[in-house]
Simulated assay, not measured.
Amino acid sequence: MVQGKVIRFDEVRGYGFVAPDTGGDDVFIHVNDLEFDKRHLAVGAVVDFTVEDGDRGLKASTVTLVAPAPVLAGVGASPGALGGVPTFLPPLPDAAARPAGEAPSERELAAEVTEVLLAGVPTLTAEQVLAARGVFVAVARSHGWV
């Protein structure tokens, strides 16, 4: 079993991503693999899961809830790309709080790119999101942006 934190979950669509505590690529999570009620899953929740190779990349299975998502000040609904259905976004570090000239971390950039891709093109599959994000982060790394 692996433990990780949910970084995105769309309850309407029934899928999202979890970042393993051990590092590495984010893992696709689907409502059908939850061992608990999906209403308890939100960004920031801590879950235990088994990692499997799915048809489209890494996939979480046998997902159990370790700790519910914390209530975070300043995090709320933002207009989603699902016909006005709110999408709850994880908080990203305030760029103004970062010292001048300091680039975001790869993890920060990856989280933001994931949100942009899912909001801009909601029909993308998990595999497509991970592939596009990987290419973008690699380009950012090669230019020293992260």
Rank of each mutant, 00 (worst) to 15 (best):
L34A: 00
D37R: 07
T125F: 00
R141S: 11
L58C: 02
E115I: 11
I7D: 01
V27W: 01
A97I: 02
G24L: 07
P68D: 10
V121H: 05
V47F: 01
D25H: 11
E115K: 06
D25C: 05
R141L: 08
V75Q: 11
G44P: 04
V51M: 13
E52G: 07
L124I: 07
P20E: 08
T22L: 04
G74P: 05
V12H: 12
G120S: 11
L65F: 13
A77R: 12
L65A: 13
F136S: 14
G57D: 10
L109W: 11
A69P: 04
V6H: 05
A73V: 12
D48N: 14
G80W: 02
A119P: 00
D94F: 09
A111T: 10
G80K: 06
L92G: 13
V12R: 13
A97E: 11
L41K: 02
E106A: 15
D37F: 00
R133P: 08
A60E: 03
V63K: 01
A103F: 01
I29T: 08
H40G: 09
L58F: 13
V139P: 03
A111W: 03
V12D: 14
I29H: 00
A77T: 10
A100I: 10
E115S: 10
V47S: 05
E127M: 04
R13Q: 13
P86W: 06
L58T: 08
M1C: 09
D94Y: 04
R107A: 15
A81K: 06
F28I: 01
R107D: 14
V146T: 15
P86I: 07
A45G: 08
V71N: 10
D53Q: 15
V137D: 11
G101H: 09
F9S: 00
A126V: 03
T64K: 13
G23N: 09
V71A: 14
E112H: 15
G74I: 04
L65N: 10
S142F: 07
D33Y: 03
T125I: 00
L117S: 12
R8Q: 08
L41Q: 03
T87R: 04
T123D: 07
L72T: 14
V75E: 10
V46S: 04
